[in-house]
Design a protein around this nucleic acid. Structure first.
Lengths: 107, 107
DNA sequence: ACGGAAGGAAAGCCAACACTTACGGTAAGT
DNA sequence: ACTTACCGTAAGTGTTGGCTTTCCTTCCGT
């Protein structure tokens, strides 16, 4: 149900860079921002979007906030993509059947 | 390599509506636009974005252009998501190992 | 050959959004 | 207690992008 937010979140290249960084090693905000060409508040805003999409999980550790990947958003995304694809396959099979019945009719 | 375009393409709700419609049954532009609250040129623009992302395949049929799902974009998308997730799992395993070695050292 | 349908292309407008600077708030160290 | 580090929030700005209207090209039918 939240795959739409996940898609919007992953559409931005900066957010993808952030999430790829976190996937390889969960990190606090400052370290993430240090490796990116944008300011730290910008990273904070992106992290909020990613968290709201169910893609990230936060763990408060003193004044640091460690961000980690959250499987929730991924499952929603993969489920959506799989649904689309199975629908397409079914439609393709239907079209093939219709075509087959046409040739069967003319024979 | 084109998963970024696919993500940008799927971020828009109108484009998702278009692609869900096509997944269930491949259709020409006019029929798609008829079921949507936007104009036909808008649908054309969206179809261009989706095609450039490798998500759609066009088949010229007289003056009609039948749009169908193209697996290329999907494979790129799923591959990207899987990469992210396996990276996250590896990072998680690393963290667990570090934690385990810590407790082993103290014992 | 001609009229009409189907759809892509160009130009313009407006809202959404990514980014910045500035501020406030909380937790650790001395 | 005071300072410093870490981070989220607010307000303002510029650009991107989605939509519309208009126009043009291409193809089928008669």
């Amino acid at each position: 149900m939240t795959y739409d937010k996940a898609l919007i979140a992953l559409a931005d290249p900066t957010r993808r860079a952030i999430i790829e960084r976190i996937a390889k090693s969960p990190s606090p905000v400052g370290q993430i921002a240090a490796t990116l060409p944008v300011s730290r508040p910008a990273v904070s805003q992106h992290l909020k979007v990613l968290s709201d999409a169910g893609l990230l999980h936060v763990e408060q550790r003193g004044t640091r906030r460690i961000y980690t990947l959250d499987p929730k958003g991924w499952w929603a995304l993969r489920a959506y993509l799989d649904t689309l694809w199975t629908d397409a396959l079914a439609a393709f099979a239907d079209a093939a059947n219709i075509e087959a019945s046409k040739t069967t009719d003319t024979s």
